[in-house]
Design a protein around this nucleic acid. Structure first.
Lengths: 205, 205
DNA sequence: TTTGGATTGTGCCTGATTGTACAAAAAATC
DNA sequence: GATTTTTTGTACAATCAGGCACAATCCAAA
């Protein structure tokens, strides 16, 4: 273990490992090996061992890794050993789907508010949430110290909405709008655009 | 230009460039430079020049790149200079959102069918589509020579559904289920799991 | 207690990726 | 027409990432 700074590409693989470990745990497994985990996620065993060993010696020779122990460590590292309050901005179809999604709960996140700027939507219910006025976003985000947002507005208003989120103190944005966002260096963005993902595959067809 | 095989990491950036070029074109621009494009997408100008030059000399010294010309070239390379017929499997909230999404049209894709295995959904309308019986998927996919699918079923049935898609000749899967899929080498998979994307960012908070 | 099988963590090497710098060329300016 | 500015494409250098192989260690069984 060398506690230097960890490459982002490794950080990106840890949630994949954690997700696979959860499945193993759900099916009653107590331990696993780099080889088994590698087959599950499609990554070489050596790669997995090296990734994990960046953070400490979590395995045991001859035995492999204790699943609950490794999950706890990965959750620590990724800081999902707590619950992050997140908000959804934009209550179109995607925002709607995210608001109804029950897959956040066990994995470190909780949707605390949802916003839209359409008067026809504000005040109405979406799942368990009342749609809040996007005009009140700044105060509400600051009051609740929200650090994470999912952005589901149309491309045309995405940059403006992102600017507002940044101003309100948000440091991580999951962007569903099909546009690259311009944000300060300390704000992290992840992109989900089904079309770019599809286009990445058509090259090989 | 060296027509050797192109690293996947470069292929992955091309759709980002294409998306930004479309925005520039929409706002009436005729030409751009690696620097301008780089600022738009958050990638260094040198990187962009090198990526593009893998495929030919598409720019002009002193002038930069013709936007329509470069877009055409990128579409050629990515094979989105045509329209790919795609299907959606699983008509939950996400499948619903994708079925209603109108962002596929101009970017090389057209949803041709949607499937579910829930008798309560089969035969009903979702947007413009009639939900088809997933049991009939194999014949329909083969009949229409479908190569691309978006998979939106629950994690528990995702691997089984993927196996069926592969058997029906699908070669590219955009997987929304929070699980790593096991597929043959010639089948490409892209993953969209909001939680793994969020977990990748919490590390830095 | 000893032996055999399994599996980790890591040093080394190779190949992949990115950044730097600059000649070449086009356009703009004078 | 000459000079300056802009911008590409690429050679070179440096950094990064991934695969291989193996000593070290642990468990199980005899």
């Amino acid at each position: 273990m060398t506690t230097e700074k960890i490459p982002d590409i490794i950080i990106g693989r840890l949630p994949i490992y954690l997700r696979a470990l959860q499945r193993l745990a759900d099916s009653g497994e107590q331990t696993t090996s780099s080889q088994e985990l590698g087959e599950l996620v499609g990554i070489s065993a050596a790669q997995i061992r090296k990734d994990i060993s960046q953070f400490g010696e979590f395995g045991k020779q001859g035995t492999g890794y204790s699943i609950p122990f490794l999950m706890e460590k990965l959750r620590n590292i990724l800081k999902v050993d707590r619950v992050w309050e997140v908000v959804i901005v934009g209550m179109g179809d995607i925002g709607h789907a995210l608001a109804n999604y029950n897959g956040f709960n066990n994995r470190g996140f909780h949707v605390s508010m949802v916003f839209d700027n359409d008067p026809k939507k504000i005040g109405h219910k979406v799942g368990d949430f009342e749609v809040l006025d996007a005009g009140t976003m700044n105060e509400k985000l600051k009051a609740h110290k929200i650090r994470i947002a999912m952005l589901c507005v149309p491309a045309a208003s995405a940059q403006e909405a992102a600017d507002q989120l940044v101003k309100a103190g948000v440091k991580a944005i999951l962007n569903y709008a099909p546009i690259s966002l311009n944000v300060p260096e300390d704000v992290h963005v992840q992109y989900i655009d089904p079309v770019t993902h599809l286009q990445r595959m058509t090259y090989y067809l």
